[in-house]
C-alpha cells in the first residue's frame, strides 16, 4: 500500500508518518507543497492520499481536482484541514474528496479512517 501525505507543516507530517508506519498500513510518501504532490502523483500509483487544503503552489482542493479530473483516478482522498467551514467541507466533497477531518484532530481517529478507506482491519 502506498500513501501520500501532503501538508506544509513538517512537524505534523512527520508525526503522521510515524503513526501510520507503526500501524503498518503501507509506505508513506511525503509532499510539503502542491508542486511536489503533483510530481509524486505522476510518478507513483497511490492507494490513498491525505492532504491539507492550504499549501504553497497548489491547494489541496486543486490536488483533488487534479486526481479526479485530469488523472481520472478513484484513489481515496482524505482532506485534513483547519478550514472547517461548512462551505469548504461541502466543496471538498463536491469535488470528490472521500473524507474530511478538521484540525485539530486525533491521530488515532485518522488511523481508523485511513484503515477503513483502505479496507484494512
Amino acid at each position: 500500500m502506498k500513501i501520500l501525505v501532503c501538508d506544509d507543516d513538517e512537524a505534523l507530517v512527520s508525526m503522521i508518518r510515524f503513526k501510520l508506519s507503526r500501524e503498518n498500513v503501507g509506505d508513506i510518501f511525503i509532499a510539503t507543497d502542491g508542486k511536489e504532490a503533483k510530481r509524486l502523483l505522476q510518478e507513483h500509483e497511490f492507494d490513498l492520499i491525505i492532504t491539507d487544503i492550504h499549501m504553497p503552489y497548489h491547494s489541496g482542493l486543486e490536488i483533488v481536482s487534479f486526481v479526479r479530473q485530469e488523472m481520472k483516478k478513484e484513489i481515496p482522498i482524505i482532506i485534513l484541514s483547519a478550514e472547517g467551514l461548512e462551505l469548504t467541507v461541502l466543496r471538498a466533497f463536491d469535488m470528490g474528496a472521500n473524507d474530511f477531518i478538521s484540525k485539530p484532530f486525533s491521530p488515532a481517529e485518522l488511523t481508523i479512517r485511513v484503515k477503513r478507506l483502505l479496507n484494512l482491519k
Binding site: 492550504h54 483547519a82 478550514e83 472547517g84 467551514l85 469548504t88
Partner: peptide, 8 residues
Amino acid sequence: YNYILSSP
C-alpha cells in the same frame, strides 16, 4: 491568518 479564512 487562517482564523480569518475559516471564520463565518
